[in-house]
Nucleic acid binder design. Structure first.
Lengths: 194, 194, 194, 194
DNA sequence: GTGTAATCGAGACGGTACGTCCTGTCTTCGG
DNA sequence: CCGAAGACAGGACGTACCGTCTCGATTACAC
């Protein structure tokens, strides 16, 4: 009733699907995004090339599907109630994600690709783990209605500095999440009190 | 006296060099970074493939050399004396560069590539047009000694939000440079007055 | 029963195979062996370069396969019963093959290549159209058991003079097969009667 | 009087010439004819590429010049007075030359190349070490006027079998020069006595 | 001495083939 | 219909040599 009602023929092999997603994860770690090829993925997954192409068009899509859930999870934090603590915790998670996590490496690779491949750009704009997680944290920690700037801009103020720092190749150890959090909150308050 | 006075062998052909740099610029605009190939560059420049490889190893290197001067120029602003005006002007230049300029497209492509190619990453960290320009502006507009945070972090606070906004594919028209500038300055002042 | 009954995967394209063999024949005639390249062959055959390399490693192998059957056919003669006539007919066929036939040109090119390429040398020693045909003719025309010298040496005596004449670039018209045949037979008989 | 009377400009460097000829000899032995390149020759000789091209057009020309004298010397034999001994001695020298000598390897390489390169063919027909040496031996050993066949054909009968044997890749040890010599002489006598 | 002219080294140049790799599609057989 | 296997056209990869060229430096002869 609720499924494709008459899926005639042999059903999709779920083992093949997960083997491919795992292969992509492994290869990202082992050889990097650039050296990752559709051929390599299929061979690593022990799957025919056609099977990969049947379900995904680009390696970006596979990588996106393979890492999206991890990204969401890694960027979700439990709130304490204290705004400064919460923002700090979020920035710590963000830095960990961007600089040290495999899902974050996948995200950076995809975002890099998106700069010169509109298909990947569209993929990313459809599901935006950074923006989504930041929106949630800001709403919960600071309140949606008391924000002196639109929520979307606030996410950019929150994410931007760390994002730039990591993507421009700077050392993540030089960044202090608590200071960034203070700066973010005080900046908004300064605007508010004018 | 001050130059290499005995360059043995046939000298490098300067026309070939500029033809290659121009070809890279043209191709970036016409077909985009991903579809730009060493073969395509050499053919567009009317130059042998070997000649390209003799002087550059990767298309990234050529693009970097072709766009570095433009980037520097586009990000340099003349200062008025008023900090808010200056920061605003800089952010306007930054947004124009990242979102609309050819040199900016080159920069974004290279930065994207740097996420999964350490050779390109090194290339970019050697010459950092965004950081350099931001450092200059902050020093001149706000004074180097009165900054409540290290200069390097301040550049991240200044550049980060716009950088994230554009690279994550958001609409540049939704960003108001003056507001970003106010936020940047007030945030720093709030820190200072604590 | 007698064939590979389970050839997995897409079967080889027989059209591509014959197109390549024809292309090699054509190119040998049109541009000569030296100017014949793997690239040229693939383009002439309307076939991808990979497809050529998939089945043959060197142009020599293709040429060998393309001309072996023709060589065998051109060097096979129908026997009359008279030894002198038969040997004469064989030498006529041999001269025609070496000096005027396309398959002969292929054979000379391969033999030339074999002088400085051991891979080609092995190829030729595995299938030796001159030796094979001469062996047959001598056995049938003169009898195997009455030969005063080993069969193998007899083939060298039969083939050698014409072979040297042509390969050293001398004019085939100056060679009279009947005289060579007489000389060959009388030489053997002289040995025999001692 | 007998030399170029006014060779203006810097004279040719004789050291460079011999260095090139030696390099060709060395490379023929070390890497073989096919892998021998003009670039490799110049580098091995410690000479600029232009200097090689100034005096020779093809590697075949250099190799020819480098080996012609050796070939002539190796194929010249001192006559004893007994025809059978002389012919046998010549065939021994011929086999040694073709199968084991460096100059012989050069000759085979050039003759091989001549099968598909008319420039090399012309080179070889201008100076024919095998034919020349065989003519001399036959004239001296058997007398020019008593030959029952034209001298040129006689050389083919003498050289041909060994020539075919070696160039077709057969084992030189299986060939007995004395038997070949007997066969050659008896064959001619049989013709004569008819 | 002071041209003039040819040689030599070094090495850049436009070209072209090399053999390999990956792309995305296809064609077969078997589940 | 799905999937494994693998052939196919196409095209870029980076390398090697080709034969030519453009330099500066050298080495002879002629004036």
């Amino acid at each position: 009733m609720n499924k494709e009602h008459n899926p005639v023929g042999r059903p999709r092999n779920e083992q093949a699907r997960t083997a491919i997603l795992n292969a992509v994860d492994d290869l990202l770690f082992e050889v990097g995004y650039a050296a990752m090829t559709m051929k390599g993925i299929s061979e690593r997954a022990g799957v025919s090339r056609q099977t990969v192409y049947r379900w995904w068009s680009h390696k970006a899509e596979i990588l996106f599907e393979a890492s999206a859930a991890d990204a969401e999870e890694e960027l979700a934090i439990s709130l304490s109630g204290d705004p400064l603590d919460d923002i700090t915790a979020y920035l710590e998670a963000l830095l960990r994600f961007l600089a040290h996590s495999l899902a974050g490496a996948a995200y950076r690779a995809l975002l890099g690709e998106a700069q010169h491949d509109s298909v990947v750009a569209e993929l990313l704009s459809a599901k935006d783990p950074l923006g989504d997680s930041a929106r949630v944290v800001i709403e919960r920690a600071l309140g949606k209605d008391t924000l002196p700037v639109p929520l979307e801009q606030a996410t950019a103020l929150l994410i931007g500095p760390s994002f730039f720092w990591i993507l421009s190749g700077r050392d993540p150890a030089q960044l202090v999440p608590r200071e960034l959090a203070e700066n973010f909150i005080h900046g908004l308050q300064a605007r508010q009190s004018r």
